[in-house]
């Protein structure tokens, strides 16, 4: 039987394309235009070629922020992905407790970023915060406002608290979608819990883990509000990540040209790393 391809359904994509063009493509084209000009407003501008790119690429602030950003995203993924899987595996599969766990896990996801930053800012304070006061009372010198390590640990723990739930919920939905026959076959083979996890659950979780890794990488790479509210980028520049450096440049100093060049480099880094993650994870599926 000859199958006749019909591509008319592609017309249905047009409204989405128009929306994305309006909200993303046109603004990005504008950013490209800004990045090659010394611009204050559309009527006051001079073409400078690739000068802003050269300046930004040789700027030590960008190098430092980029390094901090990669370390932060790597830590976030290294903690949140295994922890999210572990939480999902420990959750009850059905009944009232399952519903309760789902609601409790969803709560951090509902809290706005700036509120999360404020919660942890107060929680970590040595004078009035439960965490800061307790640690100091226990003899642990803890001050996220003056100690770099404390600031980093607090920002990381805050992100883990805020976003591990997302990974756990995604993994939980993935685990629930595994047909029971796999577990029955494993029981017949007397497979250990580890073998069930390694050869049934983990491979079946691959697609949701791909989404989880991508979302957490992109979000952590773009993190702004939480560390800004918690530490203001300090002590010094210890927790100043890429988006904060960019905001300082674009909004604080109103350097629109360099900020536009910075944005595009930032975008290219996220695009490359996300594509590498996606290709590596889907390529394994194809070769298997």
């Amino acid at each position: 039987m000859n199958k006749v391809p019909n591509n008319h359904a592609w017309w249905l994509v047009l409204p989405v394309f128009a929306l994305v063009a309006f909200s993303a493509i046109l603004p990005m084209m504008t950013v490209v235009n800004y990045s090659v000009q010394d611009i204050f407003d559309p009527s006051t501008r001079f073409f400078v070629g690739a000068d802003w790119y050269r300046q930004v690429l040789q700027d030590p602030r960008l190098h430092d922020s980029l390094l901090r950003q990669f370390v932060f995203s790597a830590c976030v993924l290294a903690i949140e992905i295994p922890l999210g899987i572990a939480v999902a595996l420990c959750m009850p599969t059905r009944g009232r407790w399952a519903s309760l766990c789902l609601i409790v896990l969803a709560i951090p996801l509902l809290i706005p970023w700036n509120v999360v930053g404020t919660i942890w800012q107060i929680f970590g304070r040595a004078d009035i915060g439960l965490l800061g006061w307790t640690l100091n009372a226990a003899g642990v010198s803890y001050n996220y406002a003056s100690n770099t390590l404390d600031a980093w640990v607090t920002v990381l723990v805050m992100d883990v608290w805020h976003w591990t739930s997302l990974v756990a919920l995604l993994c939980y939905s993935g685990l629930r979608a595994i047909p029971d026959v796999y577990y029955q076959a494993a029981r017949i083979d007397r497979a250990s819990n580890w073998a069930v996890f390694r050869y049934i659950q983990l491979p079946k979780l691959k697609s949701v883990l791909l989404i989880a890794v991508m979302l957490r990488f992109m979000d952590s790479f773009m993190i702004y509000t939480e560390p800004f509210v918690l530490t203001g980028g300090g002590p010094g520049n210890a927790t100043t990540f890429l988006s904060q450096t960019l905001t300082k440049m674009a909004v604080g100093q109103f350097d629109l040209g360099p900020a536009a060049a910075f944005s595009l480099i930032y975008f290219l880094i996220i695009l490359l790393v996300s594509w590498l993650f996606y290709t590596a994870m889907t390529h394994n599926d194809q070769t298997r």
Binding site: V32, N33, Y34, V36, I39, P42, S43, R45
Partner: peptide
């Protein structure tokens, strides 16, 4: 479109990308 602050090089760049995508689409259909 003046709000987009167009320059000749960026206009040429985006025209090149648009022509490339249109060409690739036509090639793919064919």
């Amino acid at each position: 479109m003046s709000w987009m602050a167009w320059t000749t090089p960026t206009a040429l760049f985006f025209t090149f990308i648009a022509v490339l995508l249109a060409g690739m689409t036509a090639w793919e259909l064919r």
